[in-house]
């Protein structure tokens, strides 16, 4: 199976991933190669097999409803690209 450059661009947009125009071709080639590799999975009949999402055969542990975290805004925002008045700033969001 092979991916077209248009498909690569579509996926890249879905993943909000900038890709240089000159690299699109090579991504299409690499991803197509990966898909060929994956195509081997269809050799095996997996009907009736229960999908395994996780290696752990356990159930979720629950946390007591207790507030344990304090305000650490200063520390966290010291590493932020752009903040003002305690807010993270991003280009204007249009709704």
């Amino acid at each position: 199976m092979s991916l077209t450059t248009d498909e690569v661009k579509k996926i890249a947009h879905l993943a909000r991933l900038g890709i240089d125009e000159q690299d699109v071709e090579s991504y299409a080639r690499d991803l197509s190669g990966m898909l060929d590799l994956m195509a081997r999975m269809s050799e095996l009949n997996t009907e009736g097999v229960d999908p395994m999402a996780h290696p752990m055969d356990q159930v979720q542990r629950l946390r007591a409803d207790v507030v344990t975290e304090q305000d650490n805004r200063e520390k966290f925002q010291a590493i932020a690209p752009q903040v003002e008045a305690g807010l993270y700033l991003v280009p204007k969001v249009i709704e």
């Binding site: 946390r63 409803d65 207790v66 344990t68 975290e69 305000d71 805004r73 966290f76 008045a85 305690g86």
Partner: peptide, 23 residues
Amino acid sequence: TKSKIFSGASTAYGAAPNTQACA
């Protein structure tokens, strides 16, 4: 609830921005 669904930060309404947002 007192704390968030996946963290121990408070859910109280009206705090100063980002003071109740933990790691």
